[in-house]
Amino acid sequence: MNDTWTPRIVVFQCQYSLYCEADQKWMDTQLPPHIKLIKVPCTGRISPLFVLNAIQGGADGILVSGCQPEKCHFKEGNLGARRQLDEFRRFLTYLGMEEERIRFAWIDLSERGRIQQELADLEETIRTIGPIRRLVTRAIPVGEKL
């Protein structure tokens, strides 16, 4: 593995999940360019379609950051996300990819600094397992209905 390769990582963040100001500020302003932050109202909003699109587009790793169970801002949104995305994650093996590429971080209110740790861990994992096998991508023209 050459050292110059940098994994591309997409972070889906529930917009309510980071309680500490410093963490949110870090996410908003200090993310390195190879990490893309996408904020959603709730992890429950993350359609498997989004994750699939990220993989099709060539993301090497995906981090889903949400709230602890029972502490979801939308009562049970993160439980729905768990069911749906966990299912999707198992589907990765079927495609011949490693499940570790999708990582979930259910962060409690008081867990200051955990998101940085999770991102670093994910990047570490991705570096050991290497770049993702590119799927045949389908170009989606802007504005077309999916």
């Binding site: 959603v40 709730c42 429950g44 909003r45 359609s47 379609l49 949104g77 996300a81 749906q84």
Partner: peptide
Amino acid sequence: CGLCAASCRSASIGLPDEFSNEAVIENL
């Protein structure tokens, strides 16, 4: 919250503007 949008199999229900399927995927 968008839970319905994430579960809809035909993308027939969704949130408007910045959290619509199109906007998120385009951003990606």
